[in-house]
Amino acid sequence: MTYKLILNGKTLKGETTTEAVDAATAEKVFKQYANDNGSDGEWTYDDATKTFTVTE
């Protein structure tokens, strides 16, 4: 399945997607991506749209 990440950071904004077997796997990928790019904030997940959002 395709999962989407929306970044609403102070310095990093945008979207990216990943293919993953489940939401937990996608979350690990996205959290590593956000960490690698210095983005940290409040995470939410919408199962209906398969979208993670991180807001700083």
Rank of each mutant, 00 (worst) to 15 (best):
M1F: 14
M1D: 13
M1E: 13
T2G: 04
T2M: 11
T2W: 10
T2S: 06
T2E: 09
T2F: 08
Y3P: 02
Y3F: 12
Y3Q: 02
Y3W: 05
Y3T: 02
K4S: 05
K4T: 14
K4M: 06
K4H: 12
K4V: 09
K4G: 03
L5C: 08
L5A: 01
L5G: 02
L5Y: 02
I6T: 04
I6L: 06
I6Q: 04
I6M: 05
L7F: 12
L7M: 12
L7P: 00
L7E: 02
N8Q: 10
N8T: 10
G9Q: 05
G9P: 04
K10G: 11
K10C: 13
K10I: 14
K10P: 13
T11H: 14
T11Y: 14
T11E: 10
T11S: 11
L12T: 11
L12K: 10
L12I: 14
K13G: 07
K13W: 12
K13I: 10
K13R: 11
K13F: 11
K13T: 10
G14D: 09
G14P: 05
E15T: 12
E15Q: 10
E15R: 05
T16V: 15
T16G: 04
T16A: 11
T17H: 10
T17K: 07
T17P: 01
T18N: 02
T18V: 14
T18R: 04
T18F: 12
E19Y: 15
E19K: 13
E19S: 10
E19A: 07
E19Q: 13
E19G: 04
A20L: 02
V21I: 13
V21P: 14
D22Y: 02
D22G: 02
D22S: 06
D22N: 09
D22H: 03
A23E: 06
A23F: 13
A23C: 13
A23S: 09
A23Y: 13
A24T: 08
A24L: 10
A24G: 07
T25Y: 07
T25G: 07
T25D: 07
A26T: 00
A26Y: 00
A26R: 00
A26G: 01
A26V: 01
E27L: 15
E27M: 14
E27I: 07
E27K: 09
E27T: 03
E27F: 15
K28E: 08
K28T: 08
V29R: 07
V29D: 04
V29S: 05
V29H: 11
F30K: 01
F30Y: 00
F30C: 03
F30W: 01
F30R: 00
K31P: 00
K31N: 04
K31D: 01
Q32S: 07
Q32I: 09
Q32F: 04
Y33A: 02
Y33N: 02
Y33K: 03
A34H: 03
A34C: 14
A34V: 15
A34E: 02
A34L: 14
N35Y: 14
N35T: 13
N35V: 15
N35S: 14
N35M: 15
N35A: 15
D36H: 07
D36L: 12
D36R: 08
N37F: 15
N37E: 07
N37A: 13
G38K: 07
G38P: 03
S39I: 15
S39E: 11
D40Y: 15
D40S: 13
G41Q: 06
E42C: 12
E42K: 09
E42W: 11
E42Y: 12
W43C: 03
W43M: 05
W43Y: 01
W43Q: 00
T44C: 10
T44F: 10
T44S: 12
T44P: 00
T44Y: 10
Y45R: 00
Y45V: 01
Y45I: 01
Y45A: 01
D46W: 03
D46R: 02
D46P: 00
D47G: 07
D47R: 06
D47Q: 09
D47I: 07
D47T: 07
D47E: 14
D47P: 14
A48S: 11
A48H: 09
A48L: 12
A48C: 09
T49H: 06
T49G: 03
T49K: 06
T49S: 09
T49R: 05
K50N: 07
K50V: 02
K50Q: 08
K50R: 14
K50D: 02
K50S: 04
T51F: 01
T51W: 01
T51M: 03
F52C: 01
F52E: 01
F52Q: 00
T53L: 06
T53G: 01
T53M: 09
V54L: 13
V54H: 03
T55C: 06
T55H: 09
T55W: 11
T55Y: 09
T55P: 01
E56H: 08
E56V: 11
E56K: 05
E56W: 13
E56L: 12
E56A: 10
